[in-house]
Simulated assay, not measured.
Amino acid sequence: MSLDLYYCSTIPGCRAVLMVGEALGLTFNLHPLDVHNKEHLRQEFIEVNPLKTVPLLKHEGLVLFESHVICTYLINKFGKDDSLYPKDPASRAKVDQILYFDSGTLYKNLINCLDPKHPKCAYIKARESLSVINRQLGQTPYAAGDQITVADFALVATISTAEAVQPDLSRHPNIVTWLRKCKSVIPGYELHNEPGVQQFAKLYHSKKQKDGSEVNDKNKSGV
């Protein structure tokens, strides 16, 4: 079995894949790419993935280039049970709903908000997106129900990245409680997620300083 994973540790989706792999006891052949220095634009990688994105997984001739798809594929293929990605249609739909929200709304809005020159509307959208998750976590202990699922792996990678540069999440107390819990129970969090989060924060603050931008008053109050 050969699992080749092309990744960049600052990207939340890459870290989610690594944590899922840890939970499943998998060993990847790791191919780190520094996207900040445009290593993903090298011709040899473009030949593998014309979209020039990471993460990318190669397994027995199969090539997958979307983090949530990679995570669910690994669970379906190697999971000993369906606890991380339930087979029951209703339960799976709840997980998928969070995964789609993460990739299509939450991640985009948080990244836009973290741009030091972001417009006010990006900040508002980021807060609204977090409010959706906070409301959900007021109903269930984990993102898609009573048990931890792949949805939590994806969300924790995204939200911990935002927390590292906008640490005040006090408007979303359910997220604060959930995040603290996930950091202690998700396999490989300290190994695979935390270093990438800190690296992202370092790059963020370095870029902000280089651009000469200041954190304005509304950012000081957190998202």
Rank of each mutant, 00 (worst) to 15 (best):
H172C: 05
K108I: 09
T140E: 04
R180G: 13
D102Q: 12
L169M: 05
A16P: 07
I159C: 07
K210F: 01
L130R: 13
A90N: 14
Q166D: 05
S129W: 13
H59T: 01
T53Y: 05
V176H: 09
V69C: 02
C121L: 08
L64N: 04
A201L: 04
H59P: 01
N216I: 02
P12Y: 06
G196Y: 13
E47W: 10
D152L: 04
K87V: 01
H36N: 06
P195N: 06
A154C: 08
D34A: 07
N193S: 05
Q139C: 08
E66Q: 09
S170V: 05
V54R: 15
K52P: 04
H205A: 03
I124Y: 10
L191V: 02
V176K: 14
S160D: 01
L5C: 03
S184H: 09
I186W: 10
L56S: 06
E214W: 06
S206C: 07
R42C: 00
A93N: 10
N49I: 00
N193A: 05
N49P: 06
G138F: 12
H172W: 15
T140Q: 11
T158M: 09
L57W: 13
L155A: 04
L64C: 04
L18N: 11
Q97S: 15
I70H: 12
K207A: 10
K58D: 00
S103K: 14
V223W: 15
K202Y: 14
L24T: 03
F153N: 03
K120I: 11
S160M: 04
F65T: 03
A126G: 10
S103D: 01
D88S: 11
T105M: 06
L33I: 11
P141E: 02
R127I: 03
E60V: 11
R180A: 15
F65C: 02
G25Q: 11
S83Y: 12
L137A: 00
L114G: 01
L41Q: 12
Q136L: 12
C113A: 15
L114F: 09
Q43Y: 03
V165Y: 08
P50E: 01
Y189C: 02
F65R: 00
N216T: 02
I159Y: 10
H40M: 03
I133E: 04
D115S: 05
G196C: 03
R135P: 00
T53K: 13
K108W: 07
W178R: 13
N134V: 03
A164T: 03
P116V: 04
V156R: 10
L191I: 03
N219T: 03
A154F: 12
F78S: 04
P50L: 06
